[in-house]
């Protein structure tokens, strides 16, 4: 930037006007770009309050003209939606906690403990990252079939917690533990703590940011699962939310858009609210890991 000998009033005001304009241009661009991100959610929420006659009304109504909560009541009448909500919630929580334990144990061992074959085992585990769930769905279906576990939640819980989906989080934990200074643990060792206590009492409390990222990853992963429950579950009362959402039809298979959207709203909004409250931890936690799911 050039230095100026004397303050030039007109140039300064022109510059500030230009800055105002560029601000305006920036906010205008951002607002336009934001439309496809916000509008679907808005449309989902508002349409779920519309009676079926208004759903395809022309011109489209941005705000329901005759708001009704009937679609929300129909959701519970047509499907055991509360039960399905509980299914999704408890599976997500069990898998998230399970994954945090499995991944932090394995991640810690791979980062800190020396044992024969560690390299080879680590490479074998990483193969899990390479396998899309769709590749193994047929044999997994048949294995669980042989064990009599089809139409139960076990396949979803077991595979998500111990199988391929948890490899990414193990990897995140390992990277994190590698970056921790070893001195604290060395000191604890000299004080006579065993490995398990060191992991639980020293390493885990330090690993909070990484554990948060792991929790977010595995929660979103399980919450969104669609192929697996479609394949493994058959009874309506065992369905998870994503499967249930696709099943809102009238007695003869016709789509019931407003009811389906009401169910979608109830599925999406709570997670969205949690995200808005905790969005800094979300975004930074994910950026911190340098990866995505």
């Amino acid at each position: 930037m050039r230095t100026e000998t004397a303050p030039d009033v007109s140039r300064a005001s022109r510059r500030s006007r230009r800055r105002t304009l560029s601000y305006l241009a920036f906010y205008a661009t951002m607002t336009v770009l934001a439309v496809p991100f916000v509008f679907p959610t808005w449309w989902m929420i508002t349409s779920s309050f519309k009676p079926i006659t208004e759903i395809f009304a022309f011109p489209p109504t941005l705000v329901p003209e005759n708001p009704t909560i009937q679609p929300f009541l129909d959701v519970f009448a047509l499907q055991p939606f509360a039960q399905q909500y509980w299914n999704s919630a408890y599976i997500a929580i069990v898998v998230t906690i399970g994954t945090m334990l499995v991944s932090s144990l394995a991640g810690y061992a791979f980062a800190r403990i020396q044992f024969p074959g560690a390299n080879a085992i680590f490479l074998v585990v990483l193969v899990g990252l390479l396998i899309p769930a769709e590749v193994t769905i047929v044999p997994l279906f048949q294995m669980f079939n042989g064990l009599g576990l089809i139409d139960t939640h076990w396949p979803i819980i077991l595979v998500s917690t111990f199988g391929a989906p948890s490899v990414l989080t193990t990897f995140i934990m390992r990277q994190f533990f590698l970056s921790l200074p070893v001195e604290l643990e060395e000191a604890a060792r000299l004080d006579g703590l065993n490995r398990f206590s060191i992991w639980w009492r020293i390493a885990m409390p330090l690993a909070r940011p990484a554990l948060a990222a792991v929790a977010i990853f595995s929660f979103l992963h399980v919450w969104n699962l669609y192929l697996e429950p479609t394949v493994y579950l058959q009874s309506t009362e065992l369905f998870t939310l994503p499967v249930a959402l696709t099943r809102f039809t009238d007695a003869y298979g016709g789509a019931l858009w407003n009811v389906q959207l009401a169910a979608a709203t109830m599925t999406a909004v709570p997670v969205l609210l949690v995200f808005i409250v905790a969005q800094r931890q979300f975004v930074e936690g994910l950026a911190h890991t340098g990866l995505k799911g």
Binding site: L220, N224, A264, V271, F275, F282
Partner: peptide, 10 residues
């Protein structure tokens, strides 16, 4: 970022 946390099927 918000669509990332919206259920995929929804």
């Amino acid at each position: 970022f918000s669509p990332v946390v919206v259920s995929l099927v929804a």
